[in-house]
Amino acid sequence: MVVLGIETSCDETAASVVDATGVRSDVVYSQTIHEAYGGVVPELASRGHVEKIGAVVAASLHEAGVERPDVVAATSGPGLMGAVLVGLSYAKGLAAAWNVPFVGVNHLEGHLLSPLLEDPAPSFPFLALVVSGGHTTLYLAEDIGKYSVLGSTRDDAAGEAYDKTARLLGLGYPGGPVVDRLAATGNADAVPLPRPMPGELDFSFSGLKTAVRNRVQRFPDDNVEDVCAGFQAAVLDCLMNRIEAASRSTGITRVAIAGGVAANSGLRARLMASDLTVTMPPKSRCTDNGAMIANVGRLYALRGQFHDLSFAAQPGWALT
C-alpha cells in the first residue's frame, strides 16, 4: 500500500511517500520568512504553504516514482488552523481526483509513531517523549491508537523555552539549534540553574526561563556558551529524569523520542549513554515532515480505517 502524506501544521510544507518498503520520498520546504519576525506568523505560514504545496507534493511523488498513491493522508490537527487547512484541503482535492481513500492524521500521533519508521523499530509497549516547540509530553504507547499520557508540561514546551532563552541571549529564531551548538563548548557548572518540579512526571519550563533571565541580569558578564550549557543541562536533566522515572514505574525500558527537540545533540547523547533501549529518528525526521504523516496514514489504512472527505480540521485534537 502506497501512501502520500502531507504536513502543513506549522512552518514546514512537507510531503512524503511511504510504502511497505519504507520511506520512498521525504520532501520538506522550511519557511524562513518567520526569522525576521522572531517567531512563526500564522498568516504568513498559511500563505507560504499555498505557494509551495503543489511543488512539494509533485517532488515527493516524482522522487518516489509514483503517479497515483493508494491512499492520501494529511495532518488535520493540532496546529495552526489556517496552515493545517491548506494541506488538508489540498490532500482532499487529490483524494477526490484520484478516487482514493483519505486519512486525517493527528500531528502528535505522527511524531509519536515516527520511530516505527526506524530499523529496528521499537515494539509495543514503549515510552515515547514527544518534545518540540509546541509540545512536551511523555506517553506510554501500548498499540497503534492506544496511548496514555504519563507526564506533560504545565506551561511552556521545552522547545519554547529554548526559543525564549535564545531571544533573551540575542541568538535569533529558531533558538534550539544555536543554543544546542553553543552549549557543546560551554561549562554548565558555571551557570547553575534550577530543575523545576523534582519527583514528578509532569514538566515545567517557564520558571527555568525566568531563572535564565534573572541570571543574565545579575551576571551580565557570563559567557554565553556557559549560559547555554547551564540552560541545556537543566532542560535535559528534567527530560531524562522523567524518562527514567517512567521507565522505573512501568518496567518498560524501550524509549522513543520525537519532535524538534529530539534533534538536540545533547539529549541524544544523554539517551545513548543511558541503560535504556532508545529509538531516535534521524534529525531530519524529528522536525515536522511528511513521512511521519504518511506512516500513520498507512498504519490506519492497513486496518481499513479511513475518513470521509467531510473530515474537519481539529485545532485541539487530543491524542488520548
Partner: peptide, 19 residues
C-alpha cells in the same frame, strides 16, 4: 477572508493536480 479563501484554493489546486 484569508483562511476561507485558502480552503477553496487549496482544494481546487489539489483536484487539478490530481486530475
Amino acid at each position: 477572508a484569508f483562511t476561507g479563501l485558502r480552503v477553496g484554493l487549496s482544494t481546487a489546486l489539489g483536484i487539478a493536480h490530481g486530475v
